[in-house]
Write a protein that binds this DNA or RNA. Structure first.
Lengths: 149, 149
DNA sequence: CAGTATCCTCGAGGATACTG
DNA sequence: CAGTATCCTCGAGGATACTG
């Protein structure tokens, strides 16, 4: 394996980053969350080469982020859907989106799509929170310590 | 520029992913949030080559995520600190950490460090929330629409 | 200590054509 | 439609040595 060092087996962020810090993987996941499921759709929407797309999809299936689901066409084919593990990546994508919207605004100032809470129409926002007292946290509010053994 | 297509100028996630979906960038940011500031410390802690480290640091400074701050040694040197834009990446890193801790547990089951709210000692958690009604959201609770023009 | 310069390798990713 | 097979390029990244 190349880049083995990237995946420091001790660090959670490190191992997640080894999977998600791949050129196409984050974009592929964006498409999945937007509803894309089929090979040809990924290929045309993302303008990714067929071989790399095949590889990335297989990798995400291997990791348990996507699963292949059969559907009927002329012959039986498969589409790719999020597993529970995959769905759990939603906060990562949303945090990325929030940050990009605020700090890397598009040239023409328009977002490519809007997101709203289905029930009340409110805006969607990713944040870090204290599970105890419920306040929103920044890096400065958090203490890093050696793990409890 | 290689991989120009990656940075679909329309999509916020796309442009953020082009920066953060780089092999070493997420790990570099992890180190920064853990308090690393100096070249040699990054180099030894991450086991990254000097040239790539130089490049990545310059890139993050260019993008306004890090800034160089002079400090006194034998001669004047610089260390790298988060800008406001850089600090704003905290939710991304924390979302990644939460996900990894739950879905990519380390081999030996131990995290490499713990995080606690400085004030109350509570746990730290990244989540997606509705700014209107305040409930926690999953992908299923969110509607995607064409942007308002 | 914090880089820069040089050189090299290898593998990620693209293009294209083919297959069931 | 959803891939697989083949071939090729180029650039990301490592190793090493040097510099102020």
């Amino acid at each position: 394996m190349a880049h083995a060092k990237l995946a420091d087996p001790q660090c959670t962020i490190s191992r997640s980053a080894a999977l998600l810090g791949e050129r196409w993987t984050l974009l592929l996941l964006r498409q999945v969350f937007l509803g894309t499921r089929r090979f040809e759709d990924f290929q045309s929407q993302m303008d990714i080469s067929r071989s790399v797309l095949t590889e990335r999809l297989a990798e995400l299936v291997d990791e348990g982020v996507l699963r292949r689901v059969a559907y009927k066409d002329a012959r039986t084919r498969y589409e790719y859907r999020l597993t529970e593990k995959g769905h759990a990546l939603y906060p990562v994508l949303m945090a990325l989106r929030d940050w990009g919207a605020r700090w890397m605004p598009p040239e023409d100032g328009r977002p490519s799509f809007d997101l709203h809470h289905h029930d009340c129409g409110g805006d969607v926002h990713a944040k870090v929170e204290c599970t105890e007292c419920g306040v929103e946290l920044t890096a400065r509010d958090v203490r890093v310590t050696a793990p409890n053994r």
